[in-house]
Design a protein around this nucleic acid. Structure first.
Lengths: 225, 225
DNA sequence: CATCGATAAAATTTCGAAAATCACCACTTT
DNA sequence: AAAGTGGTGATTTTCGAAATTTTATCGATG
């Protein structure tokens, strides 16, 4: 038994490995919307057996990133302008609700988490836009938005928000080809951050809604052209 | 090849069969919260192989009805007073949003669907409360609430609402042992129906929220005793 | 020329068993 | 007694191939 990572309890099962990889590849657009997911191909790509692969795909069906058609296999979920709008709308609903509660009830450790994640986000925003820096930026963006809502009591709100967020993230990747012109996301983040620290619920929610809507609009336009 | 259902395209795969059965059994409390789901046991119970079983369980993980612990199998999701409250809160959020849009934009066919499903619900409510009639009632209740929100444009709202609804439903089954005293759900449904037909958005949402909150409260109390 | 049907190829789904891991229990040591 | 130690049976996870179904190919026919 060769244990490459010496003493870590990262006993990751093949299913989990495949799940994470396929998930990332779908979100980042390496597996295109609507494309067929043949077990034979995926077996080769991720070097895992058919069984763990199918389990991973089944989990992704639950996440709605993959659809399964009886007796004719798995496909990556389709992307469409209508769906981005929908995703954006529901993200707004969930994220604003969670943000509101966070602003009203967040304690010191929540605030510290917001400050820290915002700081890391600004650092990432300052770097040049190489492919891997863009991935880094996406990660920091995720952490920032997650930190903002993290003070809510509701596990369900957090989990559903995360699910929808990742769909929105996929659309961001899909529309990355188009240089979405006149948008200063760093400034948008700064404004949200400011309102959050001031605990200005109305302002923070309005700015977040704007922020999300801009992403939605940008992706929707990039897609219908 | 013996084709029992002559000419229906109901080519249901073993995975789908297991998925549906396990799902129902979890929701109806035949598989208790927190209980271990051993593949050997389930294989016997549902007479399907290990592979389709594990795929079904993986899908249920995505639905959050089952949790998987690395290298130590699957368990039915725990139930707790805190979780019902959470589920109820999120159901309120999603359901009211969808209901609002339905009232504002629902056309004739939506209204007809509401009328029909309400009628079937009242018929079921009129019957005696035998175990199987209770199951029937649960089905009609589901259809009624689904009809109410069905005019929304948002697929995501509908799907997420359905997911959360089923968790709420599970809590209803779990708290059925306790006769929840002074509650006239038929009257609550009637009031909601009336407000919906009048297209009174405020009233319909308020009544629905009350309706959901009562269920939440009843389940929460039944659980903490 | 399009359509239909039979056949072959490809893909999905399922099975039975092997490999890896965990849980439990008796046993030793301090 | 408490805490470690090792072994054994049960359980989870994974594999390789068989069974089943879909998809593609290719003539023959109207």
């Amino acid at each position: 038994m060769n244990d490459l990572a010496p003493n870590s309890d990262s006993t990751q099962t093949d299913t989990e490995l495949a799940y994470g990889s396929i998930r990332d590849d779908i979100i980042q657009g390496h597996l295109q919307p609507g494309s067929k997911l043949k077990v034979a191909d995926l077996r080769a790509r991720y070097s895992v057996g058919a069984a763990p692969l199918r389990e991973a795909l089944s989990r992704l069906v639950g996440d709605r990133l993959v659809v399964q058609q009886t007796q004719r296999g798995f496909r990556v979920k389709e992307a469409s302008p209508a769906d981005v709008e929908d995703v954006g709308r529901v993200r707004n609903l969930l994220e604003c609700e969670a943000l509101r509660e966070s602003l009203l009830s967040g304690k010191d450790d929540w605030e510290a988490r917001v400050v820290a994640s915002y700081h890391r986000l600004t650092l990432a925003e300052g770097r040049s836009k190489s492919p891997e820096n863009l991935r880094e930026l996406e990660l920091r963006n995720n952490e920032f938005h997650e930190a903002l809502v993290s003070a809510t009591q509701s596990r369900w709100l957090l989990e559903l928000r995360a699910q929808v967020y990742h769909h929105h993230e996929r659309y961001r990747y899909l529309s990355r080809t188009k240089k979405n012109s006149s948008r200063d996301t760093a400034a948008e983040h700064a404004a949200i951050y400011d309102a959050v620290i001031r605990r200005d619920v109305k302002e923070a929610c309005a700015l977040t809604t704007d922020h999300i809507d801009r992403t939605t609009k940008s992706a929707s336009e990039a897609m219908s052209s």
